[in-house]
Design a protein around this nucleic acid. Sequence first.
DNA 1: TGTACATCAGTGAACGCGCGTTCACTGATGTAC
DNA 2: TGTACATCAGTGAACGCGCGTTCACTGATGTAC
Lengths: 202, 202
Amino acid sequence: MTTARARSHYHHGDLESALISTARKLVRQDGAEHLSLRQVSQEIGVSPSAAYHYFPDRTSLLSGLGFSLFEELADFQEKEISKIAGNSARAARERFRALGRTYFHWAKKEPHLFNLMFGDFCSLEKSPQNQREENRAFINLTKCLDELYEFNLISDKMRPYGELLSWSVVHGATSLIIGGHLEVEDFETTLDAVELALGIKG
Amino acid sequence: MTTARARSHYHHGDLESALISTARKLVRQDGAEHLSLRQVSQEIGVSPSAAYHYFPDRTSLLSGLGFSLFEELADFQEKEISKIAGNSARAARERFRALGRTYFHWAKKEPHLFNLMFGDFCSLEKSPQNQREENRAFINLTKCLDELYEFNLISDKMRPYGELLSWSVVHGATSLIIGGHLEVEDFETTLDAVELALGIKG
DNA sequence: TGTACATCAGTGAACGCGCGTTCACTGATGTAC
DNA sequence: TGTACATCAGTGAACGCGCGTTCACTGATGTAC
């Protein structure tokens, strides 16, 4: 970006990604509903109309940001998972919990961004891109459950419900906690409950 | 309202509740972020400043609406539950599922309202009133789980997780479905999973 | 290597808008005597 | 029962604002010859 910017004062060089990252910064602070194109442009130091070369309107900038956030979450999860090495049952269990924890921690750290991804379902049209990134996270979950299953840590009866149950519980607890309806401590208890439910422990 | 309105053309008679119910109507259509006091006033046929006798600002009107929505949801759940009579294990199970279903159906029918209650966590300050109404729904859940427990339908091991697990799963699946990340059919599967998890069936 | 020119990526002024909120006001109400 | 008056619940004009979006434009770039 520094080099790109050095090219010229007139041409920004990488405005599209600057728009996304500045939008990220502002949504992070104020929430998606307060994002304005003018504010984004001003922050970058570019005229208000420049953005229209990249996004037809405000909504599609938010969509673009949404996509990049799904990427970001998946990256974050994969990075954390990869820290837990080993082919043991123990490691598999830890990876499973890590998967849930990273989801929660990310949301807890960035509630406004989380809300853009999952809360403002109406302003965010469901693009095929988002679908794809979501699948990436979903595939990670499936891999993790398969691994547990191979170690006989999930009962046959429960395995088919693995993805749906895990994602719903983790997402639900996360939402309710950042919404102030449950306590932070409840998250680990919830993970315990899922493990018990799947037969992983107990 | 008709009689109250008939009193006079100048004095509305019941403006406070008219503000809430009109706000409800508009949020229902357009989402909370698009609610404007001017629009609400205009809809009622009252000057834009009249609302300030009842709500100090836009945000507190939304809070007021939020409170009334928690009431509404609890009412709806209680009404549906009460349709299922009987002191049998079977009835208890049906009441449990009904509790989850009403939550989901309500959200599915009114996604914008649901989003105001649970999604826009940032704009809605957590009033003691909301707390109370939420408790009402929570108490219904506890009663239902206790009943199942008395019929030996929940294992000792899982009973302590009952509320947390049920609420998280139901809330999570609901959010993900109205957000377009899961399919409508997944909701019943999710309920099956919770029942299996708690030991209610299987 | 130098130049003409199409294309790209910005500018900046202007549009019309609806918004939240304030203020001094006034019409209606109901109560005390 | 009638009247004076404090209180309540509205009015409507005005404020200043930031917004999304459009448009004709221009400066920079890079490519073909």
